[in-house]
């Protein structure tokens, strides 16, 4: 136990801006994000992530949003297991035909008002997989989409920035 505490103190707070340009941007975006979430979502934006057929690359970066450096929870972003609690669906894909029904059901199970963000080149336009017998391409081919965050995969910073751009301009 002592060792654990020691390591925690050694590590310190790593979420502070590091001397890279992106860190300064992160601090800036994070501040605005926190403010927008406070204003529009009563301090907590609850996200349900749905992998609708991705290669898992986008998921790695969404998980990284939770690591101690990006630590999205400090801005009020929380990931939930149930779509019933979600304000926002973060959907990666290309949407596979085998996930089409599950995605629609998840969308229907999310209470309105709700936001949908298509993540990654695949979620935005099908990416390298395109549209085929097995892939329906972009998320917007299956459910209504409010914003897109391109990239392959988009970095945690891109994701935070994309979410900020959406909710900052959005009237609840």
């Amino acid at each position: 136990m002592l060792r654990i505490l020691h390591q925690i103190f050694r590590t310190g707070v790593v979420t502070e801006p590091l001397p890279e340009q992106v860190e300064a941007e992160l601090a800036h975006v994070g501040g605005r994000l926190e403010e927008a979430i406070r204003r529009r979502f009563h301090r907590s934006l609850v996200i349900r992530e749905v992998d609708a057929g991705s290669c898992n690359g986008c998921e790695l970066e969404i998980i990284a949003m939770n690591n101690p450096i990006y630590n999205c929870e400090r801005y009020g972003i929380q990931f939930t297991a149930s779509p019933r609690f979600a304000d926002l669906l973060l959907v990666t894909g290309p949407v596979s035909i085998n996930m089409e029904i599950a995605l629609k059901r998840t969308y229907d199970a999310t209470p309105t008002p709700k936001l949908v963000v298509a993540v990654g080149d695949c979620g935005c336009h099908g990416g390298i997989f395109g549209e085929s017998y097995a892939s329906l391409g972009s998320v917007s081919n299956v459910i209504p989409v409010d914003a897109s965050i391109p990239g392959c995969p988009p970095t945690p910073f891109d994701l935070l920035n994309g979410i900020l751009r959406l909710i900052d301009g959005h009237q609840p």
Binding site: D51, G53, S54, C55, N56, G57, C58, E59, L60, P94, S96, I97, N98, M99, A102, G127, I128, F129, G130, S132, Y133, A134, S135, C152, P153
Partner: peptide, 27 residues
């Protein structure tokens, strides 16, 4: 559930682009 027709998709790509697709079989 995540079947995207990758093996079939290879058949439509050049050998060079195939490397990009292979790099997205499992991110």
């Amino acid at each position: 559930y995540t079947h995207k027709g990758i093996e079939k998709r290879f058949e439509q790509l050049s050998w060079k682009d195939g490397a990009r697709l292979a790099g997205r079989v499992s991110g």
